[in-house]
Design a protein around this nucleic acid. Structure first.
Lengths: 355, 355
DNA sequence: GTATTTTATGCAAACGTTTGCAGTTTTCGG
DNA sequence: CCGAAAACTGCAAACGTTTGCATAAAATAC
């Protein structure tokens, strides 16, 4: 109906015959304002339907009370859970969270950094693209002393606060677990080595093999984006010639699930003929039959840590240079049916078939 | 190192001996500025590492180029997918998306509306809480002619743009499907009736029963928040006494999955003894054994529609009053094993057991 | 009752843009 | 070479806050 409904503090001031400064201070509970005027002001603010203009305040204070969050995608279980936690936690502290997706495209990530800077976010948390090796597009934030935290997918030689899972240990434990369950020809389907996660998991994998005197074979490791399509392609290759492996360590659960379903189709029995382990403990891993052994990365804990790190840095005087530090989130192997010990069912007597 | 790194257009202006207005116009490609100066300005902007301050521009223009999105939670498959799509689409058009979670708490939703308004978002899309029946906390947006779109969980008597799935048809089709597969004692586990989704699905369920001359029994319908815990509680009740139902229509897949697992434990065979249908077509529904029949709600299409509606409204002159209109997103029943026809396996001869 | 402290309030500048209007320069026809 | 139109550029105000400093009023001390 009316044209300009937007009430401002000057409207309140006029109405009350006060100065805008007094109104501003009253609304912000400044100690120098008497309780009586504070009440008057707040009542009038309510009556007029006043809502503060965050942009004006932000401009003046040079802070937006908004925090940027860049993740590959929010439709994947792990980043979604982390984002949820971060968002809820920061909200409690009066911050907005601008959740952005890079869609695993470096180009988009760079653009995101640019526009997020433009909105003058107070801090930034990022889990990078699979392909980000040069992180200089985040320099603006460092240069201007804007708190910057990386998590999960983190840079290697870039001085920032880092919060990551223990991927080396994860890779090691998975591999050792498979060995202990009797595997000695273990395929590893890894993500691209441009990403720290996979570098470390591969290292764990290799070390576990070495420790148990199993020779590492280059042909038994795949580097690829961990999509369903790529997993299928890998299956085609793996099962195109004998001997089949007796264990597969997939670097995510989508891949593990795809392999499992493939095995069903070609009548390779899991876990009797082949043991499968995934990574991330996606809800689907627990539900499929046989349920899939996976590695829990405790996304809620990671999210909590990221939020705390941000809040911490936000307290500190902006002048203090960003310090490098690495925090490790533990992992836990969740053993399930897909890698269970070879207890042959009484039904059939076929115990060892492939070898 | 240096204290004030933040370059502004006045820095550019000084450096180039131009006025700030010219610089501003040059950066915005205003037609009245010669190409030569535009180039000069842009070069200098680059050289100085200038980044526009969105808050300042927003204050002046009274727009933030930010759009609010309120969903119950982003860790659930359906809203997560929609959010992803909306975000990507709006990003292409130069908008930020502030994704917020109400965590299904009305109180939080109200607070969210308030603070989102404070940030002067240019538009708002919301999928409400399960318990929101009074939507007046969104009045501020309507009153100020800020585009407002509801999707999925939408108000009944509140004049706004609405985009929703065809939940009545969904409920009807699921029920009819179960009947056609031979069920005639169908339990429905519904969400609370404060939410439009469930009202409509229940209506569909009842109408399908009536159509097929199956009496509706009040004791065969449950209204509850659709969590795992509640699903288990419902199972306890349902299977505490005979006769067992021969079909269950669960209003989400988490519930369907929980029931399925419960049935495994108590040796009720699915689909032979009991058929189960879920809703939303969560990825888990396809993966579990037996796979669960569910209803695809095409989240990507819904997201697309929401984004388009927002963009549409953003074009229009703010003066135009918000118009009420409802758009329907189709649904599709995805038939899977959990409700397959009772083809007895040759193994055992038990064909019909319960009846 | 005056001087001093304490308590409340107001003035005005500042934050970094955009934009209507006015002013200046250039172009060009005649 | 003049005058008018066209092409550029600049001035200054405005957007809605916050805050250092100054000032006014009230309370306290002597």
């Amino acid at each position: 109906m009316s044209k300009r409904t937007e009430k401002t503090i000057v409207d309140i001031a006029e109405e009350l015959k006060l100065s805008v400064s007094t109104v501003s201070r009253a609304l912000n509970n400044h100690p120098n304002i008497s309780t009586r005027t504070k009440e008057k002001v707040k009542k009038m603010a309510n009556k007029l339907g006043y809502r503060p203009n965050a942009m004006a305040a932000g401009l003046r204070n040079n802070k937006s009370r908004t925090i940027g969050l860049v993740v590959p995608r929010i439709s994947m279980f792990f980043p979604a859970t982390i984002s949820t936690v971060i968002q809820n936690k920061l909200h409690e502290h009066g911050y907005h969270v601008l959740i952005c997706q890079s869609n695993d495209s470096l180009e988009q990530e760079i653009a995101l950094a640019e526009t997020l800077y433009s909105t003058r976010i107070d801090a930034l948390a990022v889990s990078s693209t699979l392909y980000t090796t040069d992180f200089s597009h985040f320099d603006i934030f460092k240069d201007n002393h804007i708190p910057l935290v990386f998590f999960d997918r983190v840079p290697k030689d870039y001085k920032v606060k880092v919060i990551k899972g223990d991927d080396y240990l994860g890779g090691y434990k998975v591999t050792e677990h498979l060995i202990e369950k009797g595997c000695n020809d273990i395929v590893h389907i890894s993500g691209p080595l441009t990403c720290n996660l996979y570098v470390e998991r591969v290292a764990g994998y290799k070390d576990a093999l070495r420790k148990h005197k199993i020779p590492f074979k280059k042909s038994r490791i795949f580097y690829q984006e961990l999509t369903k399509e790529n997993a299928l392609a890998a299956c085609e290759k793996i099962f195109s010639k004998t001997p089949y492996p007796d264990g597969i360590f997939a670097a995510n659960d989508t891949t593990a699930i795809t392999i499992l379903e493939y095995c069903r189709k070609i009548n390779v029995r899991v876990p009797e003929d082949l043991k499968i382990v995934g990574y991330s403990n996606d809800p689907r891993a627990e539900i499929i039959t046989p349920s899939i052994t996976s590695v829990d990365q405790f996304p809620a804990i990671m999210g909590e840590k990221v939020a705390n790190a941000l809040l911490d840095l936000l307290q500190q005087p902006g002048a203090m240079p960003q310090r490098y530090s690495e925090e490790l989130v533990p992992i836990q192997l969740i053993e399930r049916a897909s890698s269970a010990a070879p207890v042959a069912k009484p039904k059939t007597t076929v115990k060892k078939k492939v070898k």
